[in-house]
């Protein structure tokens, strides 16, 4: 990758983070949503931690999937509205690098905080504190893969009416492997078993996403802005 592209990535990253911190309310939304969903289950199922522990992995991952989906809509929408994205297409700089930078910023703003609050949610579902480290790593890798997959969906639905209804339909089927491996790693961590194998599969998905998703998302952005 050329030094110019690296500079572009750094600049876009800085800008996106700065813009996002001007609106902290929007940043907190997915986090609050995540915590709320995980709170619904103890209230809906049972207060017994032993029973909650059995469904904890599934609950955590379904909630994380929905929370990251909620945040996806903001990934490109405002930049497409005010013309920033179009300038990035026309700038002659690699659009793939720009998309990668925006996706990275999006993950730093949603996936990372989500992973940091997971121990709270995990504790409320009866996961022992010894399992938290494994769960946090799994959520870090999983949300990275979800942000990357989601960037394709967000780019495709840019110019679409009713895009917010279409986005889940496009993204959720593609996210299924992340859910499967993430939930399995979490399950094993809670049970105190070795959880490295699903974690490695999760990392493989994230690496595959890093290499392919920005390319596809850049193609989709070009189509959407045509």
């Amino acid at each position: 990758m050329s030094p110019a592209a690296l500079t572009a990535i750094r600049l876009i990253l800085q800008r996106d983070l700065r813009v996002a911190f001007r609106r902290p309310g929007q940043l907190l939304q997915p986090l609050v949503f995540f915590i709320m969903v995980t709170l619904l289950f103890p209230l809906g199922v049972s207060p017994e931690l032993s029973r909650l522990r059995e469904i904890a992995a599934g609950v955590l991952w379904a909630a994380a999937l929905l929370a990251s989906l909620l945040a996806l809509e903001f990934l490109f929408r405002e930049d497409a509205h005010d013309g920033t994205l179009e300038q990035q297409v026309l700038s002659g700089q690699s659009l793939t690098a720009a998309i990668f930078a925006k996706t990275l910023a999006h993950w730093l703003l949603t996936g990372l905080p989500l992973a940091l609050v997971t121990p709270l949610a995990a504790a409320s579902l009866g996961a022992p504190s010894a399992s938290w480290a494994g769960i946090v790593v799994a959520v870090l890798l999983g949300t990275a893969a979800l942000s990357l997959i989601g960037s394709i969906g967000a780019a495709l639905t840019l110019g679409v009416r009713r895009g917010s209804l279409l986005l889940p339909l496009l993204v959720l089927p593609l996210s299924l492997p992340v859910l499967i491996f993430g939930a399995r790693a979490t399950q094993l961590a809670i049970a105190g078993a070795p959880y490295l194998a699903p974690l490695q599969l999760l990392a493989a998905l994230a690496v595959l996403g890093v290499t392919l998703a920005p390319l596809a998302a850049a193609a989709a952005v070009r189509v959407s802005l045509e």
Binding site: I152, L156, T157, G159, V160, R161, R162, G163, L166, L169, L170, A216, A219, A220, V223, S224, E226
Partner: peptide, 20 residues
């Protein structure tokens, strides 16, 4: 099918759904 039907411009619908 949903993406295709949500985009009015046929050429854009073609290319967006092709990426998908």
């Amino acid at each position: 099918l949903g993406l295709r039907s949500a985009i009015d411009d046929p050429q854009r619908a073609d290319r967006a759904s092709a990426v998908l």
